[in-house]
Amino acid sequence: MADNYEYILETEHVSKKFGSLEVLKDINLKVKKGEVICIIGPSGAGKSTYLRSLNQLEKITSGKIFIKGDLFLHREKNKTVERIGKEHQQKLLLNMGMCFQRFNLFPHKTVIENVMISPIHVKKINKKTARDEAIALLESVGLAEKADQYPNRLSGGQQQRVAIARALAMKPEIMLFDEPTSALDPELVGEVLKVMQNLAKEGMTMLCVTHEMGFAREVADRVLFMADGIIAEEGTPQQIFNNPQNPRTQNFLKSILNA
């Protein structure tokens, strides 16, 4: 894969319909390598749907997605127009790692097995290497001593950190976070955000759907405000939080900050 791309992730005219309901309306976005983007907005705005359609957990109705300048997906009117080789597509897909609101760890595998499973079975890395890498990753999220526990024995915050380590084990260049702290008790939010912050510092490209305005303000390079399936406003955290232009953004921020 060529490295001479301008944007690591690009979406063009991405739309999605559930029947007559338009969830995403013609979304265009260009993300540079190392950029941290936070997506905020009221519920039902299509934030999660957009994020999940990037790695095909949701099928888009139409639009194009490019990863590292390579066409990853092109659909029009619910049909894939350009057939992209399955292997190539898979390769591009593996550039993205994802963390879920509900962690979705594999409960029947220990923490370290959760981290190792994909490198071993998908990337066909040998067990020894995978194990060493997994331990290093768990150390980086501060959970090396929990390696042989089952996920159900961990707190929500710890589980989410394992989930991050699991996603990182595939060495992605883009990390997608789908409300990673929404399901956590308030006192556990901090530990997860800290891991994410570190990740951002190391130069990871991140797309993050979040309700943590503090985090967005501090870490994000760019904030997108989504409402009714469109990006209603975008800009730097300062622009969005201190001087929102769109009345909807103003209303949304007002309601959040007053709550």
Binding site: L57, L93, F100, R102, N104, F106, K123, R166
Partner: peptide, 27 residues
């Protein structure tokens, strides 16, 4: 089995047989 398990497996690049045999059926 929770849909999230399929999604996590897919996000990690597993194909359908891998998802079934490694994640879903054992659970």
């Amino acid at each position: 089995i929770d849909r999230g398990q399929y999604e996590a497996a897919k996000a990690l690049g597993m194909n359908y047989p891998q998802t079934m045999s490694l994640i879903i059926i054992p659970q």
